[in-house]
């Protein structure tokens, strides 16, 4: 299976994951400050800043775009419960 890496900058940990992994699945286990509320892309709690590898994440859905807008997200922000890593490396931290 294709591998990818996610670096959680707030705790300085890089995790090797299978492609397709949602960021939130790892961030809560590894103890990063990217925390979740609803896990359904509705509340905006898990907003994160993507410092590197934006294009290595799945495109935001219409729903995620809407929630990002409602939460005044910056252009480098995504929801960890929605974004899946496609490959390569991605660096994130709590927004």
């Amino acid at each position: 299976m294709a591998k990818a890496t996610i670096t959680f900058e707030d705790i300085n940990v890089t995790v090797t994951v299978p492609a397709g992994t949602r960021v939130i699945e790892i961030s809560e286990k590894v103890g990063s400050g990217i925390t979740y509320g609803c896990r359904e892309g509705d509340c905006g709690t898990c907003m994160m800043k993507v410092s590197e590898g934006w294009n290595n994440l799945t495109e935001p859905s219409v729903l995620e775009d809407k929630i990002l807008r409602e939460n005044y997200a910056g252009k480098h922000n995504r929801l960890a419960c929605q974004a899946q890593v496609l490959g390569g490396s991605v660096s994130v931290r709590p927004a």
Binding site: I11, N12, V15, V17, I26
Partner: peptide, 8 residues
Amino acid sequence: REARVIDM
């Protein structure tokens, strides 16, 4: 803390 690399 030093950077760490781990597997899922």
